[in-house]
Write a protein that binds this DNA or RNA. Structure first.
Lengths: 247, 247
DNA sequence: CGATCGTTTATGTATAGACATATGAGCGAT
DNA sequence: ATCGCTCATATGTCTATACATAAACGATCG
């Protein structure tokens, strides 16, 4: 038993969590390099003096987070990181602005209910025809435009949206409270402001902007497409990555 | 038994996976709204005709991904989504270019070993003084520059990097093979190309560019800071979000 | 009436055993 | 040498059981 020196006995931590932590430690420290075969379940069973289910729970968890790969008959191996997966937190714009210590203001610029055009349907990946709501609004940080929001909402998926004016509440927070979310795809790119965007954001035409587009589905149905355009200097997205575990 | 119509009997899917999928379905479809109490383990045990451990595995998994919250003595409840977290896959640039069907080429522009300047240390959040390696390289997609890479590597954390010329292999893939990663932070923003960047990327000064900066740590030590600058039209980051599960 | 204490209950953790399944390795026949 | 076959083995899944623990509930007592 050589584990006494590496752990603190007093903590009420469960055994499978400790096994998981021990193995993560060795992988992240580089002691067990990618490709290394970690001990078999029955070996860990012996080392920790516990049943196989306990070891299995820890290893399954490690496999789920992508730190190891399990192969029947061969054992479990430290994975070589192929593509790093970073977690990008998508906050409400109001919170973002207020965290900067600036007063937030929201303004609806246009509001149009229309029969979905082919362009609308392409943006939302909506296959059937149907009415859509097209919104255009601006979010301000103090006196300056912080971001331009161009949004389409499928009224097939969210008929209640037709009754909402969106004068007081931004479509983002409204949707969060009205639609169960199931999937979203974000596309992030840079672009030069065209004349319309430049006017809306108060920047020169051609000025660099960060564009975040999001498509959202709810149980297979496209719900909304939104494009946020930020002047280059107003916004930075931050994504964090810790391979050991989520949450 | 009202489940026969919702599932396909032929698939060799495990029972706990099916329980997990069934419950996810009901939450994501909105049938079970946030705050709703999902059946107790012993009720699901009866419904599915299985042992409690099997049900427990499914529910624990749901709790881990954040879809439900479990409370002792009270039961398990559907969680209200607070902030969306999207998963951003960070790929190797070579793979990115090749997936576009273009020939990839890498070119080292400058390579300098130096005593870390205060600016270097600030970028890496390195607190002690120490030698660093400063690299500047370009990645090409066909004839056109795809991206400019400006990188600092702490030689305290990775002394072996001093021996590597980085003429043939890009620092990114080299580091992946030599340093166990433990944490990374990405900052994504748009910017206008300054004269130097414009020259390196073959674009007009002021042209919009997407900038991805990454800081990486290995077991608490800063390892590297890298800034990738892409011409606006060459690159889009994609982040996906599925609350049901990762991977 | 309110504080305290035991009881109940659902989850949390762990066990020992069982069978399924995929797959690498070795063996044998062609 | 190559193609199949069998066999051993590590993981994948599941069961029935057990005890621990946190928290809500209710009854009892000051």
């Amino acid at each position: 038993m050589d584990k006494m020196d590496t752990l603190r006995e007093q903590e009420p931590i469960s055994l499978h969590q400790r096994i998981l932590a021990d193995i993560s430690e060795r992988i992240l420290s580089g002691e067990w390099a990618p490709g290394h075969r970690i001990p078999f379940e029955h070996e860990l069973t012996e080392e920790y003096g516990c049943s196989r289910m306990t070891v299995n729970k820890a290893l399954s968890e490690l496999a789920r987070t992508g730190l190891i790969e399990r192969r029947r008959r061969s054992g479990s191996f430290v994975r070589t990181p192929v593509s790093q997966a970073a977690v990008l937190e998508i906050h409400d714009i109001k919170d973002e602005v207020q965290e900067l210590g600036l007063p937030y203001r929201y303004e609806l610029a246009s509001h149009q209910k229309r029969k979905g055009t082919p362009a609308d349907r392409a943006l939302m990946e909506l296959h059937e025809a149907g009415p859509v709501l097209a919104l255009r609004c601006r979010h301000f940080a103090g006196p300056r435009p912080f971001c331009l929001e161009e949004r389409l909402i499928s009224l097939v998926a969210v008929p209640e949206a037709a009754e909402e004016a969106f004068e007081e509440i931004a479509p983002g927070p409204w949707l969060v409270g009205h639609v169960p979310w199931s999937a979203a795809e974000h596309r992030i790119r840079a672009t030069g402001a065209d004349a319309e965007i430049a006017a809306a954001l108060g920047v020169e035409p051609g000025a660099p902007c960060l564009v975040v587009e999001r498509r959202t589905w709810s149980a297979e149905h496209p719900v909304t497409h939104v494009r946020f355009t930020y002047p280059a200097d107003s916004h930075t997205l931050v994504a964090r990555f810790t391979p050991s575990q989520a949450r």
